[in-house]
């Protein structure tokens, strides 16, 4: 399982593939205040990223992967700032 869904948090693990996006979208629709843990995530397919952006989620834990974090920060922080 590339996304572990907890009570109010989705934990992204390793590579989160394109197939996860629909489930993620459904889950976030029901949990508008959910947070995302990207700590153990090494990559996520942009479809998932789009869901996170549209849902304006807040990131509980940033990825340990520095490269991924840098890329994600460039858009996720901006969106959150808005």
């Amino acid at each position: 399982m590339a996304i572990e869904y907890k009570k109010n948090q989705a934990v992204f693990v390793d590579v989160v593939s394109v197939d996860e996006a629909e489930t993620l979208l459904d889950w976030l629709q029901n949990k508008p205040n959910a947070k995302i843990d990207l700590g153990r995530c090494s990559h996520l397919h942009p479809s998932n990223l789009q869901v996170l952006l549209a849902a304006k989620v807040s990131i509980a834990v940033w990825p340990k992967d520095i490269n991924l974090r840098a890329w994600l920060e460039s858009i996720l922080t901006i969106t959150q700032a808005v």
Partner: peptide, 11 residues
Amino acid sequence: LAELDAYRSAL
């Protein structure tokens, strides 16, 4: 969110 098509690339 309800109208989002996650599989339409928009980035």
